[in-house]
Each structure stands twice: as structure tokens, then as C-alpha cells.
């Protein structure tokens, strides 16, 4: 060790190493400042925009969780409480009851409850829902579109890169502020039914 102090070659080496270290340090600082300038303290979470969603079914299969964090969400305020619910019944169903062969949902996750004539309430049993979007498609095509797929933030593990987002054909996934983590379509437009 004592020789080191006197060895000019090692001293020069030490000097170079030190300069590089300082440079690297400054570089890191610069990078941090550059990036932090537009960084937000708020966290972001993944969410899908139901207005872009085409219900391809990849949400059910492409989540890192075997049981996807995307589930169907029911916006009751938009629901028409239809007897013949396009989200509940398979197309062509003749008897409107809860029989298995009539249900569109493969996991029996939609509960149908009589409210008053002729209205029925539909509730999603979230633990059963697999996020396949079949009901969402049915409701969007024939009803008000009150059934919507959403990433349930209490189930989501908040991957850095959502693996559904990567495979979503509609590019419906985006990072949204964690403070407002849902993109439910709430507004309803009432227009006169067209002639023709």
C-alpha cells in the first residue's frame, strides 16, 4: 500500500478514475434533472378506454394474472334494465330465463334480478368475471353500452408495462393518473330515434 502513494502511474490512474466518476455523477444528475423536469409525483396506473375497445377477448387471456385484472364493470346509470338484455342472453334466446344454455356469460358472472315489471337488474359477480367481454359486446351492440370492460385497480398488480396493453389491437390501454383510475363512459346522449 505504501508504494501506491509514491507511484506516479497509479496516481494518474486514480486521477482518471476520479474524473470519470465525477463525470458519471454529473451525468446522472443531469439525466435526473432532465427527466424529472416533467415527471409527476403522481403514480400512474393502466386503464382501458371503453370507447376504443372492440371486445376482442384478449384482456381475458393476455393479463399476467391467470385470472385477468380486467373485469366487466356495470355502469348502472346507463343501463336500460331491459328484459331482453343483449349482454345477458345469447342471441336467439327464446325463453328469457336464467337457464345455463341461455346465458352469454361463460362463467355465470352476471346475476339477473327482477326489479319491477318489466325491468331487471344485472349485477356483475366480479370474482367470477374473466373479462372476456362477450357481454360488453352484446350490450354495446343491442343495448345502451352500460357494461364496460375496465382494469379493476384492486386486482391489477400494476406492471410497469401492461401485457394486455401490448397486445390490445385497438390501442385502448394507456397510463392514467392513479387518482382517477377509471375511464368509464358515463355520459349518455339522448337523441330522437331516427326514421329510416
Amino acid at each position: 500500500m505504501e508504494e501506491t502513494a509514491g507511484d506516479p502511474k497509479l496516481n494518474r490512474r486514480e486521477f482518471i478514475v476520479r474524473s470519470i466518476r465525477v463525470t458519471a455523477f454529473l451525468g446522472l444528475g443531469g439525466l435526473a434533472v432532465l427527466v424529472a423536469e416533467k415527471s409527476g409525483s403522481g403514480e400512474t396506473v393502466w386503464q382501458l378506454d371503453p370507447s376504443k375497445c372492440i371486445q376482442c377477448g384478449r384482456c381475458a387471456t393476455n393479463c399476467v394474472l391467470a385470472h385477468s385484472a380486467v373485469r366487466c364493470t356495470h355502469v348502472y346509470a346507463m343501463c336500460g334494465y331491459c328484459d331482453l338484455c343483449g349482454g345477458y342472453f345469447k342471441p336467439g334466446t327464446k325463453t328469457l330465463n336464467t337457464a345455463a344454455e341461455n346465458q352469454l356469460c361463460p362463467t355465470n358472472a352476471i346475476k339477473r334480478k327482477f326489479v319491477e315489471d318489466p325491468f331487471f337488474e344485472y349485477t356483475i359477480d366480479e370474482p367470477l368475471c374473466i373479462g372476456c367481454g362477450k357481454c360488453v359486446k352484446g350490450c354495446g351492440a343491442f343495448g345502451n353500452g352500460s357494461l364496460q370492460l375496465q382494469v379493476r385497480q384492486n386486482i391489477c398488480v400494476h406492471c410497469n408495462q401492461c401485457s394486455i396493453a401490448r397486445s390490445c389491437p385497438a390501442e385502448a390501454f394507456s397510463r392514467v393518473p392513479a387518482k382517477k383510475p377509471y375511464l368509464l363512459k358515463q355520459i349518455t346522449l339522448e337523441g330522437p330515434k331516427s326514421g329510416g
Binding site: A77, G80, T123, I187, T188
Partner: peptide, 26 residues
């Protein structure tokens, strides 16, 4: 078609209360 109000929201006579849509936070 997406999000079209084809069927107006019913006026319930039985005093049915519409449930809230749960939005658990992250």
C-alpha cells in the same frame, strides 16, 4: 355501436335504488 342510449333509464315505481358502480382505487 358503443354507448348509445337506445333505451331510456326507467322510472322505477317500486322505490328501487340504483346501486353505485364500484370503483376501487389503486
Amino acid at each position: 355501436a358503443y354507448g348509445v342510449q337506445r333505451f331510456p333509464k326507467p322510472d322505477f315505481e317500486s322505490g328501487y335504488l340504483q346501486p353505485e358502480t364500484l370503483q376501487p382505487s389503486a
